[in-house]
Amino acid sequence: MSKVSVYRKEHFNAAHRLYNPEWSDEKNDAVFGKCNNPNGHGHNYEVIVKLTGEVDPETGYVYDMKKLSDLIQGQVVERFDHKNLNLDTEEFKHLNPTAENIVKVIYDLLRDKIDEKYEMKITLYETERNFVEYPA
């Protein structure tokens, strides 16, 4: 049987500051610009989880989309929504919350909860024009 991919999109709103504590303020400003604002700035993130697998002949599903939505809500949205990622989350206390790092953290949070028989890819939109995928 051929594989099918299913997608679930959720969103969360979060603030962050891009900053490397090993660098001077001048270097942080030069590299991160406005994203280095000491008070942070926010985004309306869109996260898309793609699962690829065989269609179950009994259910007709690759994966139960309600179960996937609940998993994303519990592992990602409830953890990051309306939070300052730098200050309010353990995942980014010592990790710069770039889109690249956020997408990898989301992948790791979900990968442990989803059977390895499913291929998984996470797409994270930071803005309409800026987005990242993991794994590439």
Rank of each mutant, 00 (worst) to 15 (best):
N37Q: 03
D56C: 11
L18A: 00
Y63W: 09
E46P: 04
E22W: 01
E46T: 13
V49I: 14
P21Q: 06
V47F: 05
H16R: 14
G60M: 02
M65V: 15
H41V: 00
M65W: 05
Y63D: 09
G40K: 08
Y19R: 10
A14L: 02
I48M: 07
Y61C: 11
I48N: 05
A14M: 04
A14T: 01
V55Q: 09
N20E: 13
Y63T: 09
G40H: 10
K67E: 15
D25S: 09
E54N: 12
I48C: 10
Y61H: 13
Y19I: 03
I48Q: 06
K27L: 12
L68Q: 03
H16A: 09
P57M: 10
K27P: 04
K50I: 07
N28A: 01
D29R: 15
P21L: 03
Y63V: 11
V55E: 10
L18C: 00
A14C: 08
H16N: 10
R17P: 11
V62K: 11
H16I: 06
H43N: 04
E58L: 15
A30P: 02
G42Q: 07
K34N: 08
K67H: 14
A15F: 03
N28I: 03
K34E: 10
S69E: 13
N37Y: 02
E26A: 14
T59H: 05
H16S: 07
K50M: 15
D56Y: 00
G40P: 12
M65A: 11
E54C: 13
Y45R: 06
D25K: 13
G53E: 05
K34R: 13
D56N: 14
G33M: 11
E46I: 14
I48G: 07
G42W: 03
E22R: 13
D29I: 07
Y19P: 01
E58R: 14
L51A: 01
Y63F: 15
W23Y: 05
G40W: 07
C35S: 07
N37S: 04
D25M: 10
N36G: 06
F32M: 05
G40V: 09
K27A: 09
N28V: 02
I48K: 08
P38K: 03
A30Y: 11
V31A: 12
L51W: 04
M65E: 08
E22L: 13
S69A: 13
N20V: 03
S69D: 11
G53H: 00
V47K: 03
Y63E: 11
N37A: 00
K34I: 05
N37G: 01
H43S: 07
C35N: 10
R17T: 14
E26Q: 14
N44R: 10
D56R: 02
E46Y: 08
K27R: 12
N28P: 05
M65I: 15
E46M: 09
N44Q: 10
G33A: 12
V62P: 01
S24E: 05
F32R: 06
S69C: 08
R17H: 07
P57Y: 01
N37R: 04
G53N: 03
V55I: 15
D64T: 02
E26Y: 09
G42F: 04
K50N: 14
